[in-house]
Design a protein around this nucleic acid. Structure first.
Lengths: 341, 341
DNA sequence: CTGAAAGCGCTTACAG
DNA sequence: CTGAAAGCGCTTACAG
């Protein structure tokens, strides 16, 4: 279809001629410059409409030295298809695009995984004014590449970033861990274990554990951690952690689990072993993904506010956030579904 | 962060000076022009690296009269948040971006719903060489807007398009309906009803029904349709259709359902009414969304090949597809999970 | 208030 | 094989 298009570009010179003014007047009129009479502006606008003219954004922005565009890079697991990403990150992507649009920015989106195909030099190639990196996974090459880019003074904001020194936005993981744990305690569960990881490159996991641990201690209980193993995919991690737990003979009647994907796997393993949820074991996950709506029982979870997350990432890359990183925390809420009695 | 950046742009003139050649030689050397000695090229590349130079894509493409970019518009339901879209379409978006990237195109992504904020004039504003529209829903204003754009001779490719005359790509819905129905017949179900719609603006639904009907007729059975009602969201549509069916006293022991979201609602209603799946009622959905993995039982479904879907959309907008639209069908496969005995 | 001209950073005829 | 110059389509000092 591209080659079928005979479409001859209409320029501001064409409009100028049609309206009987100079090209600069056309430019000013359409840019709403206050230096232009409303009469002239009206005439220009009319001509522009008659000719189907639109300002060439690329040319305008080349001249202005900005792009009006934010690049959004989604880091995937090597070998993972772009269609196969955890829906949580897709939702985040959606809200980032929406927030950027709200600030008048376009979004140039790419999915990256292969180490030799990483590209984040959008500023020097004049393609974007800043970069938002959404990390969906551990991908060492990608993280160190983007860490380097950020260190060189580029405008980069991160989600899911393993490095504390970068400009990140995160869920309020500590608060989430605390609320999840309180919810289980209040529901009457006695032996609440955390399924997660404290050594994960996903810093968020450690923070969730810490919220859990603090709530346990505050309730006079001892925090207990069952580590998941990173090799497998999330759901397998959940199944294996539950299997290990049961086989260890540990007593438990509730699990707060570091993320929903792991929790869904854990619930399947519990069911296979005849342990009923929420009766014999209460479960709270983290992320509030839609898949949890249709599990049986539906998964109670901690849910970040996506709109705030997108807005914070955009604000951060645009340098509009003041104050400390600690304030770049996305608020979370408890999503009561069916896995807690 | 944007304003903290003192980064002074390095241009091809700087590289030229550093390498002791003219600016045009720099341009040619970096564009791999065969008119350049390898010795010169090497010197230029070295200087470029020393200065951290990158070609300004925007300027290059302004001169070349192309953008190297495809716009991707995701049409949402008015009022729907961009983070809340059916995951099926997010996966499609991912594979479109990946396919574009494979063809050397960037992707400018936007989510649109409000009638007064529709924007598809990427070609005339010099922002993209073509447009891919992913329609996630009925949105009359949006569809008629994009229909108009396409009619004016722009390069637009559609997914989920209610108008047959446009340049669309679709799942092989007929084949999918046929395979789903055969699968239920082969599993021994006797009274197989289709839950869907034949009058929906979603053309895909009608095609799925037709595949179902043909398979039924070929097996000497009578096709039976239970219409869903568009007002509610998909899951409610499923619940209500099952409720209506049961209350009508109709005999059925299997349902082929027009999409997974409806099917998940239908399964919940069946469970609430004590009808076991797959024992008393077999279910096959359509789309193969991940949420179906965790339902109970997991939802058997018809799954389109996302990579092919993305590639076809990109090919179509680039005008690289020959032949009839009928060939722009994305192949589907049966995803056997647990809702058929 | 409007116009003539310069220039954003490239690519690409046109010469040599 | 390389260079000087024009030009992609704008915005914005500089004049008037």
């Amino acid at each position: 279809m591209l080659d079928r298009k005979p479409r001859q570009r209409v320029t501001s010179f064409d409009v100028a001629e049609h309206a009987g003014v100079s090209q600069s007047t056309v430019s000013r009129a359409l840019a709403n410059s206050s230096a232009i009479t409303e009469t002239t502006r009206a005439r220009v606008i009319k001509s522009a409409e008659a000719l189907g003219y639109m300002v060439d954004t690329r040319a305008a922005q080349l001249r202005q030295g900005r792009t009006g565009t934010l690049a959004v890079v989604v880091i995937c697991r090597p070998g993972e298809a772009a269609s196969d990403i955890n829906p949580f990150y897709f939702s985040l992507l959606g809200s980032v695009c929406a927030a950027a649009s709200g600030q008048g920015y376009q979004t140039l989106v790419s999915f990256q995984s292969a180490p030799d195909q990483l590209f984040g030099k959008y500023e020097e190639s004049g393609q974007a004014d800043g970069l938002i990196v959404i990390g969906t996974t551990a991908n060492d090459e990608a993280w160190s590449y983007y860490r380097g880019l950020s260190a060189d003074g580029r405008a980069v904001a991160f989600w899911g970033c393993p490095f504390d020194e970068l400009e990140w936005v995160r869920s309020d993981n500590y608060e989430g861990g605390w609320i999840a744990t309180r919810h289980l305690i209040d529901a009457g569960y006695k032996d609440i274990i955390h399924l997660g990881a404290v050594d994960s490159p996903q810093r968020q996991f450690r923070e969730r554990y810490e919220g859990y641990a603090a709530a346990m201690v505050a309730a006079g209980r001892e925090p207990r951690l069952e580590q998941v193993h990173h090799e497998a995919n999330r759901e397998t991690q959940g199944r294996e952690a539950v299997a290990a737990l049961v086989e260890s003979g540990a007593r438990f009647d509730a699990l707060f689990i570091a993320c929903d994907s792991i929790a869904l796997g854990a619930m399947e393993e519990l069911r296979d072993r005849g342990i009923s949820v929420p009766g014999q074991c209460g479960i709270v996950g983290f992320d509030g993904i839609r898949e949890g709506t249709h599990s049986s029982p539906p998964l109670t979870s901690i849910h970040p506010d996506f709109e705030v997350a997108g807005a914070m990432l955009v604000q951060t890359v645009l340098g509009e956030t003041e104050g400390a990183k600690s304030e770049r925390r996305v608020p979370i809420t408890l999503l009561r579904r069916g896995s807690v009695k």
